[in-house]
Design a binder for these strands. Structure first.
Ligand SMILES: Nc1nc2c(ncn2[C@H]2C[C@H](O)[C@@H](COP(=O)(O)OP(=O)(O)OP(=O)(O)O)O2)c(=O)[nH]1
Ligand SMILES: [Mg+2]
Ligand SMILES: [Mg+2]
Length: 430
DNA sequence: GCCGTTTTCGGCCCGACTGTTTTCAGTCG
């Protein structure tokens, strides 16, 4: 699978082109890198099956980039990339990971100080050579040194499941504030992407300064990257960043749309707005100077002739085209889930009682819950033997009569013996 | 470099924060 390799090469080419002030070509390469990152299929398979023609059918891939993909798949090299790299032999991948360092600064640092990699950068910053540079100063030199240190301890992307508890905690810390109105997770967390690069949060308030002041002094923050009245960004000690945006109530929908992304989805919406003679930003949809939508996301989508699109679908994979034709798929929501079919209780290795589990399921509007504790010989999970299993069944019947509005069903996660048979007799299971 | 039921040429999303700058470039979301 060469998708990742190609994406990284095109990302670097984008930075090199930006150094050469070729902004639009740079954007084309950066776009195609993002497309490759989220491409489900192996680029090699696509090429083998359909050749360069199939490559060009990938959005944002045209003749030029298809040729480069083909060249890489055939030879393992891209001449254009090697040429750019020879012109500026710098490790753009590592250097751009330093917060605040981009292609233009890399160019200056290379041309004036010969900086090629992180080590070089740290060295020239330590001896004060950066501060003396035109366009830089004492502050930027200090920031660079700090940012290098944080880049070294950065953990990259996080699993959604690992970050959700943290999101709840930070949201909880902000909710306490009387100045905070609405608050919501945004970004890749709200889109429920499997991995997230950071935590994005949106709040409404008529006193944003107070909210921001509170935000940047939350416990566990090790660095404030930026702080302003509508946008602040911090690093937590867990190695992840958190961005907070604060807007007025009237802009909540537009801001939530903007901050939920993804980036390409946003750009497509904004282009759609332009086509209609409108302007879309995080404050609303505007006709000339007047805001015509912004309070809710639905309002924003409708103002540009689209149905509401669920966050999970905002991935720039055809959802806008589907929306225009009213062919959006229905996604399975929490309220579509009718019951729980696998759960453990304190009868085996769970922590809650049957009654507590049933009540929790009822609270979630489930119609039924199946109790499936371990059963058989596995002592490590406190598995039920036949006697206890039968006793549990009687208990389930009893609790079922006590709690109305939910059906408690009997089941179990039964061990399989070495000979392939089940560890509980059929008569008991039936 | 990509793209098109307004275009095969001429556009390409739009705004916040910082530092260094006397008016804005660079980076980031
Ligand atoms: N219009 C516009 N919106 C952007 C741009 N960059 C980011 N955004 C919006 C959409 C993103 O989903 C949102 C949050 O930015 P992030 O960089 O945190 O991206 P996101 O959370 O989608 O992915 P992540 O998992 O953090 O890498 O901000 C941009 O260049 N233009
Ligand atoms: Mg994010
Ligand atoms: Mg972010």
């Amino acid at each position: 699978m060469k998708n990742l390799e190609l994406s990284q090469i095109f990302s670097q080419m984008s930075e090199f082109l930006e150094m050469k002030e070729d902004g639009f070509r740079a954007r084309a390469y950066s776009r195609v890198a993002r497309v490759l990152d989220s491409l489900e299929r192996d680029i090699g398979d696509i090429y083998r099956e359909g050749g360069a023609k199939a490559l060009k059918e990938i959005p944002s891939v045209g003749r030029g980039i298809a040729e480069k993909m083909e060249e890489y798949l055939k030879t393992g090299k891209i001449k254009e990339y090697q040429k750019l790299k020879k012109e500026s032999p710098v490790d753009v991948e590592a250097l751009t990971k330093v917060e605040g360092i981009g292609p233009k600064k890399i160019k200056t640092l290379y041309q004036k100080l010969g900086v090629r990699n992180l080590k070089d950068l740290e060295k020239v910053a330590r001896v004060g050579e950066i501060a003396a540079l035109e366009g830089f100063g004492a502050k930027s030199e200090k920031n660079i040194l700090q940012a290098i240190a944080f880049a070294k301890t950065s953990k990259g992307r996080f699993l959604l499941g690992a970050i959700l508890p943290v999101v709840r905690e930070v949201v909880g810390g902000l909710e306490k504030l009387p100045e905070v109105g609405q608050i919501s997770a945004a970004g890749s967390v709200r889109r429920m992407k499997e991995t997230v690069g950071d935590v994005d949060l949106l709040a409404t308030s008529s006193q944003p300064d107070k909210v921001m002041e509170h935000f940047v002094s939350l416990p566990g923050i090790v660095k404030v990257w930026a702080k302003g009245p509508t946008k602040s960004s911090v690093r937590f000690k867990g190695g992840f960043d958190c961005d907070l945006r604060v807007v007025k109530r009237v802009s909540f929908g537009a801001a939530l749309q903007y901050f939920t992304g993804n980036k390409e989805h946003n750009i497509l919406l904004r282009r759609l707005a332009i086509k209609k003679g409108l302007k879309l930003n995080e404050y609303g949809v505007y006709k000339k100077k007047t805001r015509i939508a912004g309070r809710t996301e639905k309002e924003v989508y409708q103002a540009i002739s689209l149905p509401y699109i669920e966050p999970e679908l905002r991935t720039n994979t055809g959802e806008i085209g589907a929306g225009l034709k009213n062919e959006l798929p229905k996604i399975i929501g929490y309220d579509n889930i009718k019951g729980e079919t696998q759960c453990h209780t304190d009868w085996s290795d769970g922590t809650e009682t049957i009654e507590a589990m049933a009540k929790a399921a009822k609270k979630m509007d489930y119609q039924y819950i199946v109790i499936t504790d371990h059963a058989g010989f596995l002592k490590i999970a406190n598995g039920l033997d036949e006697k206890r299993l039968l006793r549990q069944m009687r208990e389930i019947d009893k609790i079922g009569k006590e709690i109305s509005g939910i059906k408690i069903l009997k089941g179990c996660e039964v061990d399989i013996k070495m000979d392939g048979g089940l560890a509980i007799k059929d008569e008991v299971l039936a």
